[in-house]
Design a protein around this nucleic acid. Structure first.
Length: 303
DNA sequence: ACACGGCCGAAATAGAAGGA
DNA sequence: TCCTTCTATTTCGGCCGTGT
């Protein structure tokens, strides 16, 4: 087995067809096909099932794909280290994040990081919790910031920041005067919540199930900014995390009332990485910066 | 639309020879 | 002995046609 074969195998497994992989690699499909055949010949078993739709991994292929993914990530890490050795001080950190922490916590951390390491660039994707976990597991992202992520086999939590779920409303709203509130009381008002697949929504659904509540939201959205605006414009109340509206709370534009349901009291922003992988230096340094920023904000750190 | 295989040219590699 | 250069061989990848 050589590195070219491994690289081709990895891309075909990811793309699902030789043609798509050939476009990504800038290599003829026939060349890819031959290399995959040679690899299969060397390992002595089929790694793909061929059909008219493309290439599907066999159980042996699944095992080999896990190995290939780690080798590819290690190679990328080695290249970054060599670049640093050459004094280039460059690198790329790929982050996928929940929208709620992007504009404030994440952006300020990136700003602080780039002040000391301007050669490091960032690739940022904003997606839901389920897709964040998937991206980190696939190796498509170095770091994932998810609200209430699931700790799965290959995932390692490097930082957990306590982030309370609140009901957020305009200062003139009747609920603004309350010190705390139960989800049942909230349902009497027009309500905005995230769509299914978001960590916040999973918690809300769980709390409703336990308390036998029927959820009737006025707005379901995958846009955290829409949740903020829903409350800000006095349309109703939104269920959102405290960190997501930190600036609006500080300026008095919004009021946050903590939710008292037991299920909703333990929520966090989870910073996750692929556990089996040795992280590139730039990624390690940024993970440290995320922790430093959380400490500077005096947020409660769980891990 | 897809994978595969034959053919051919280009690039990479191995081995031999010569010079410092 | 080591390095460089040249040549023969092998490997790789692109093009194109075929079969599913």
């Amino acid at each position: 087995m050589d590195f070219t074969q491994l690289r081709y195998f990895h891309e075909v497994a990811r793309a699902g067809t030789i043609r798509k992989a050939s476009e990504r690699l800038n290599v003829a499909a026939s060349a890819l096909s031959r290399q995959i055949q040679q690899l299969e010949h060397q390992v002595g078993m089929a790694l793909f099932d061929r059909n008219s739709q493309g290439m599907r991994l066999t159980p042996a292929g699944e095992i080999y794909a896990r190995h290939a993914k780690l080798v590819m990530l290690d190679e990328e890490r080695a290249r970054n280290e060599l670049a640093e050795l050459k004094g280039l001080k460059r690198g790329i950190v790929r982050v996928v994040s929940a929208e709620g922490v992007v504009s404030d916590y994440l952006m300020q951390t990136i700003a602080a990081f780039r002040a000391s390491s301007p050669g490091v660039s960032f690739q940022l994707g904003v997606i839901g919790t389920d897709d964040i976990i998937k991206a980190v597991k696939n190796g498509d992202a170095d770091i994932g910031l998810a609200f209430n992520g699931r700790l799965e086999a290959e995932i390692e939590f490097r930082l957990q920041i306590f982030d309370r779920l609140c009901v957020v409303c305009a200062p003139s709203h009747p609920l603004a005067k309350k010190k705390s509130i139960n989800l049942r009381e909230v349902l009497g008002y027009p309500l905005a919540i995230p769509v299914t697949g978001f960590g916040i929504r999973t918690l809300i659904d769980e709390a409703c199930r336990i308390s036998r509540l029927r959820l009737n939201a006025a707005l379901m959205t995958n846009c955290i900014d829409a949740l903020r605006a829903f409350a800000f414009n006095g349309i109703g109340v939104s269920v959102i995390t405290q960190l997501s509206v930190r600036r609006e709370l500080a300026s008095g534009q919004l009021i946050a009332v903590p939710l008292t349901n037991p299920t909703l009291r333990h929520s966090s922003i989870d910073v996750m990485v692929l556990g089996a992988r040795r992280q590139p230096q730039a990624v390690e340094a940024f993970l440290k910066q995320l922790r430093d920023e959380a400490v500077a904000r005096k947020t409660q750190i769980l891990v």
